[in-house]
Amino acid sequence: MSSSKLPTQKTDSRGQNDKAFMRARNWWEIRAQKRNTELVIVNSILQTEVAERRRAEQSAGQRARTLESLFDTMLSMVASLDSQDALVSRILAGAGSAISPAECGALHLIEPETGVLELKGLVDYRDTGLTETAASGATHLALRAINEGKPFLVSDPLRISKRQGKNPRAQKTRLCGAMVAPVKTEDQVALGVLSLFSSTRLAFTGEHLQTLESLAAAAAIAIQTARRYAQAQQLSITDPLTSAFNRRGFFDVGSREIERAHRFRRPLSLIMIDMDRFKEVNDRYGHAAGDEVLCETAHRLQRNIRVVDLLCRYGGEEFAILLPETTLSTGRL
Rank of each mutant, 00 (worst) to 15 (best):
T48A: 14
M275K: 07
R23F: 14
V78L: 02
W28M: 11
L158W: 06
E325Q: 15
M275C: 12
A135T: 09
S3V: 15
R303Y: 06
G290N: 03
A181N: 06
D252I: 10
A79Q: 14
L301W: 05
V307A: 15
M77V: 00
T139L: 15
R266T: 15
D18P: 08
A32R: 02
L294R: 00
L158Y: 00
V293G: 05
L117R: 02
Y229P: 01
T8S: 15
E280F: 11
G121S: 10
Y125A: 10
Q9D: 05
R23V: 10
I146E: 09
V180F: 05
E68Q: 13
M22Y: 13
F251P: 01
S69L: 12
R300D: 13
E111Q: 10
A289K: 11
A79F: 12
P157Q: 09
E325N: 06
G165M: 02
A216W: 03
A95R: 03
E132F: 12
S89L: 09
R306L: 13
L270F: 13
F278C: 06
I110T: 12
E148I: 12
S3Q: 15
C312E: 00
R55S: 15
I271S: 05
E148C: 11
F264V: 00
L81Y: 15
Q84H: 04
L196N: 08
E213C: 06
T225D: 03
T211S: 12
V154S: 10
E57C: 08
Y285I: 01
R201C: 07
L92K: 04
L39R: 11
R174M: 13
T73H: 05
A32D: 08
G192F: 11
D291C: 04
L196F: 11
R332K: 09
Q62I: 01
V50K: 08
N26F: 00
P101R: 00
N147V: 01
N246V: 08
A216K: 09
G192V: 09
E317H: 04
M179A: 06
Q16H: 15
A219F: 04
